[in-house]
Deep mutational scan, measured.
Amino acid sequence: EDYYQILGVPRNASQKEIKKAYYQLAKKYHPDTNKDDPKAKEKFSQLAEAYEVLSDEVKRKQYDA
């Protein structure tokens, strides 16, 4: 799945936009606030993985290549 789609940001998003999108979605899908939703944990880990790659310039360049 596309990391940009997961975070809901365009491919040319700035680091600030990526961070903002991640924090909004992380708050929304955090397992502690969605105890009754088994998919929230999965969504949250996808968000974390996408953010880890896109927030790191080197990893992001490799991902975009």
Rank of each mutant, 00 (worst) to 15 (best):
Ser45His: 11
Glu52Ile: 10
Tyr63Asp: 02
Gln5Phe: 11
Lys16Asn: 14
Gly8Trp: 04
Ala65Gln: 12
Ala26Pro: 01
Ser55Glu: 03
Lys59Met: 06
Ile6Gly: 01
His30Asn: 11
Tyr22Glu: 00
Gln46Ser: 07
Pro31Leu: 06
Lys20Trp: 15
Tyr22Leu: 02
Glu17Gln: 12
Lys20Met: 15
Lys27Arg: 11
Val9Gln: 02
Leu7Asn: 00
Lys41Cys: 09
Lys16Trp: 12
Lys39Phe: 13
Arg11Gln: 07
Asp32Arg: 08
Glu1Arg: 13
Pro10Ile: 04
Lys41Asp: 07
Leu25Cys: 05
Tyr51Val: 03
Phe44Asn: 04
Asp64Thr: 02
Glu42Phe: 15
Gln46Thr: 10
Leu54Met: 03
Gln46His: 09
Gln46Lys: 13
Asp36Ile: 06
Leu7Ile: 05
Glu52Trp: 08
Leu25Ile: 05
Pro31Arg: 07
Pro38Asp: 10
Gly8Lys: 08
Lys59Thr: 05
Val53Gly: 02
Gln15His: 10
Arg11Leu: 04
Ile18Gln: 00
Tyr23Leu: 14
Lys28Gly: 06
Asp64Trp: 02
Asp37Gly: 04
Ser45Leu: 12
Pro10Gly: 10
Lys41Phe: 15
Asp37Ile: 05
Ile18Pro: 00
Gly8His: 10
Ser55Ile: 06
Asn12Gln: 09
Glu57Ile: 10
Ala21Met: 08
Gln24Ala: 14
Tyr63Gln: 02
Asp64Glu: 04
Leu54Val: 03
Gln24Asn: 12
Ala65Asn: 06
Lys43Gln: 07
Tyr51Arg: 02
Leu54Arg: 00
Leu25Ala: 07
Asp36Ser: 10
Tyr3Lys: 03
Asp64Arg: 01
Glu17Ile: 08
Gln24Trp: 15
Lys27Asp: 11
Gly8Cys: 07
Ala26Met: 13
Lys19His: 15
Glu49His: 08
Asp36Trp: 11
Lys35Ser: 11
Arg11Gly: 04
Lys39Ile: 14
Glu17Gly: 05
Val9Ser: 01
Gln15Ala: 13
Asn34Phe: 08
His30Ile: 07
Lys16Asp: 15
Glu42Cys: 11
Ala40Arg: 07
Val9Asp: 00
Ala13Leu: 01
Lys41His: 14
Ala65Glu: 15
Gly8Tyr: 04
Leu25Arg: 07
Lys41Asn: 09
Ala13Cys: 07
Gln24Met: 15
Ile6Ala: 05
His30Phe: 10
Asp37Ser: 07
Gln62Arg: 08
Val58Asn: 14
Ser45Ile: 14
Arg11Val: 06
Glu57Ala: 09
Lys35Phe: 11
Gln5Glu: 09
Asp32Asn: 10
Glu1Asp: 11
Tyr51Asp: 01
Ile18Phe: 02
Glu52Gln: 10
Tyr63Thr: 02
Glu17His: 09
Tyr22Phe: 13
